[in-house]
Amino acid sequence: MNIREILLASAAALCVGLPVSASADTSDKTIALSNNYAGNSWRQAMLTSWNKVTGQAVADGVVAAADAFTTAENQVTEQAAQIQNMILQGYDAIVLNAASPEGLNGAVKEACDAGIVVVSFDGIVTEPCAWRIAVDFHEMGRSQIEYLAGRLPDGGNLLEIRGLAGVFVDDEISGGIHAGVEEHPQFEIVGSVHGDWAQDVAQKAVAGILPSLPKIDAVVTQGGDGYGAAQAFAATDREMPIIIMGNRHDELTWWKEQKDANGYETMSVSIAPGVSTLAFWVAQQILDGKEVPKDLTVPFLRIDQDNLEEGLANTEPGGVANIEYSQEDALEVIQAAM
């Protein structure tokens, strides 16, 4: 074989090796990510996953570009202006994590009218022309009580750590937790504090309410607050309750330490930040001409006692347990919503 033939053969092998799904139909399309906030580890992981998966997709020629833009101040007006800029720049699709469910509807409508596909995820928008990849936060709260009902058949006292007051997500998860307690009346919520999804705030709030509480059997949480709660309990002479975790690295690390030391058992549930890549593939599928229902649901990422080590291995130090979605995963989620 001479050089020429080797080159030809390699090129042929490469062509065969390319995934079939990388159809050429979207290879000239551009997708933009409009993100409203980057100041916590979840959002950092979300952006990293986006760069990793879309970078590969661009290199493979699936799409022409997939640029990420983040607003500085988490302001609706600022993000609306950002979307208007994206319309002017002529992107074919905008993947959106919105600062407000209603506030951006005007800008989103303008984008739709300009023929741009808008896919909102996590922070979704209500404008009917956009697609929504929403998280079933209510179920996330309810599943915690269901897990606890299995662990503590006789029930017990719960401490609830809520998120940021007045935010839709906080109301939903808390609503789910309360619905779960109604189903399992052997549990009673004896105290409730706002931890703002931040470890230090949760630690402070729990430390403040603990002295006035009876024995706590379990702590139901919203993610980001479990380690803070554990720190607050550790500072007292109370027995460590079952603290539901939220897939953060510090929470999983602490759980692993406790598991190794004394067989501590709990579970952890949250949304993988890689959901941005799911939104990317959904947008790509819509651009590809696929019929996609307007409302999709994000799968939970749940970690249990037996897959803790695996979950921890998939979590960057300081980050959140993550999975990146593939085109096949997106097709599955779309199929499930049909």
Binding site: N40, S41, A198, Q199, D200, Q203, G228, Q231, D250
Partner: peptide, 16 residues
């Protein structure tokens, strides 16, 4: 001190 007290620094730890 806060970062040491709460078991590590977080990006949003000063917000409050």
């Amino acid at each position: 001190l806060l970062a040491c007290f709460s078991g590590g620094a977080a990006l949003n730890m000063g917000a409050e």
